[in-house]
Design a protein around this nucleic acid. Structure first.
Lengths: 342, 342
DNA sequence: TTAATGTTTGACACCGGTGTCAATAAGTTG
DNA sequence: CAACTTATTGACACCGGTGTCAAACATTAA
């Protein structure tokens, strides 16, 4: 049984291979009769065109690379799934590239990646979305790309730089803080995220603004520096709960740190949420698996990835792209760890 | 600046493109002088061969597909990373394919996947590793594949069927149970995993065998049916802790269920590990983020994926493959949730 | 010195599609 | 019915590499 190529189909249908190609791609100017005939042969022979040959001829691989460097498995996983959702719809395939963002040869690595994987485009996630050198490289090679969760818009003079999908962490943190205030809390502690990560500043800023708007002055000893991991949450929790006048609510910049605080509270017999409300950020899986379950913010990660790919594919196919960053709303998820102040 | 193809390099170096190709692939019978000359032009022009053209000419895409259907993000993530680790080393790229294993058109989907993604081979994870129809399909198309965590070896008559990498869950469960017994526990409860999942039976069997070997008779009311998720763990925990004579230790078939049990114990003021030891399985991230932290079993997921890819790539390149399944050992991780019986 | 063998090289077809352009068939208009 | 469009089709080059095979050259054996 020989392989079914376009030549075989052509011979079988008694037409030229170009005509077969036309039918394949739904090009105009093929008579209905011919179309029928060729399609019948497709079915009969079970013909599938070779994507590789197509890629060579059209210079389009239908392959998109996803670059990330994030220890948060569930974040990565949601990004992947969102990305795939769009890819599947549009016939693209996703090649994943976890990459050390501090790597020495980062730029040349990404460079060879583009070539070796013959990618049509690249999806950048934080922190790659905000690396000017990388963006410059991609621009110079005219590689289509899209940025997820970018915080800076770089040189907006260049149109493609704008292509990005974000969620508004500042706003979400603002909402969460307002929510805690609406529960009657005034003495609210805050645990900042890793200083290297741009979202840390955004979340903190949302917190500050909400306090300001409510006319509450920020106590510096209520603000602790965390590092996005469980143990830094424990540390900050210990410090906050050791204060003479301890906060009645603590807002941690992510769920792992919030979980650490919960642990410390449990150890010290501080009852959550009766004596202390705790809120997190990210809606990490853990937030549902600890008790009390965690009030948190769900970011639209899946949708962000999905939109990002829509934009990227539009760009690859030279269709018009949005003028500015697309912003998708986060969602406040209230669970058991927060309660009105008694 | 025109694109640097093999023809350009050939012209520049004053040799035929075939000779360039020879240098590129380190083929023998090229004079040193020529080699130097051509290599110099590579550098000068920054030439990178087109993987697409190569794929067309050699019928090798260097693309490998990873098929999975697993809600456990960290499992998937480890599999991906292990797989990538081998792929990177050998110049392959990984295309991920989360796929509904109950999907109606599963077989035809995988079929088109093979063609559309022009894959050289396929990595199957549970439950795909054990689907005879799928294996038959792949065999019939002579697609190289490797199975991770397969429990059945199907028709060993066919050589490739054997290609699989496993961890011995039965044995690991046996060890864990023996460990609990060594702590002095006799009244040990067990929470089974999802009945559809082959490993459930294996873990249960390991538990049973260990009890048997220790001369302990199994009490049926100590064995509860769970479904691998948190809430089923809570349910089983409630049942076990409501028994007149409750167990002094509970071994849950995975960490999520163990976490559910921990939650119920906390709610009922049953102190873990003083009054109750709890053990899980999988070393899920959550096992370190709850308190007391969970004694569990770490499976060599990363290494399994890594070996699987080594095997697969060997097979793709027609190198000799191992005769039988490769078995990698699991590791007992003791943390705070288990203690000697007082 | 000649024949036999081994090394180095390039011409050319080929992988399986798509793009260009010209040839032919069909349809319209005056 | 001639002249002009428009629709349909195929020949052929091309994408950028690799495989085959024979020619040219160098080396060794007889």
């Amino acid at each position: 049984m020989q392989k079914v190529t376009i030549n075989v189909v052509a011979k079988h249908a008694g037409v030229s291979k170009k005509t077969v190609s036309r039918v394949l791609n739904n090009e105009p100017n093929v008579s209905d009769a011919t179309k029928q005939k060729v399609r019948a042969v497709f079915d009969e022979l079970g013909y599938r065109p070779s994507p590789v040959a197509r890629a060579l001829a059209t210079n389009q691989s239908l392959l998109i690379g996803l670059v990330y460097d994030n220890p948060n498995k569930s974040y990565v996983s949601e990004i992947q799934e969102g990305a795939l959702s769009s890819c599947d719809d549009k016939g693209y395939h996703l090649i994943i590239h976890p990459t050390d963002h501090n790597g020495e040869h980062l730029l040349s690595n990404i460079d060879s990646l583009l070539i070796e994987s013959r990618l049509d485009g690249l999806v950048l996630t934080p922190p790659f979305s905000d690396m000017p050198d990388l963006l410059n490289l991609l621009d110079s090679k005219e590689t289509p790309y899209v940025r997820i969760g970018a915080t800076e818009f770089c040189n907006v003079a260049e149109q493609n730089r704008v292509l990005s999908v974000i969620s508004n962490d500042q706003q979400a943190a603002y909402q969460m803080t307002k929510y805690l205030i609406s529960l009657g809390h005034h003495r609210i502690g805050f645990v900042k995220g890793h200083p290297d990560h741009p979202v840390s500043e955004q979340r903190y800023s949302g917190f500050l603004t909400a306090l300001e708007d409510a006319g509450i002055t920020v106590r510096q000893d209520y603000v602790q520096q965390g590092y996005f991991n469980f143990s830094s949450g424990e540390d900050c929790g210990r410090r906050l709960l050791s204060l003479d006048q301890r906060p009645t609510a603590i807002f941690a910049s992510n769920d792992y740190m919030a979980a650490g605080i919960l642990k410390v509270a449990t150890q010290r017999n501080v009852s959550v949420p009766h004596e202390l409300s705790v809120a997190g950020f990210d809606n990490a899986p853990i937030s549902g698996y600890i008790w009390p379950s965690l009030t948190t913010v769900r970011q639209p990660i899946f949708s962000m990835a999905e939109s990002a790919l829509d934009i990227l594919i539009d760009r690859i196919q030279k269709r018009p792209a949005p003028e500015k960053a697309i912003e998708l709303p986060s969602e406040l998820i209230t669970r058991e760890s927060t309660a009105p102040l008694r």
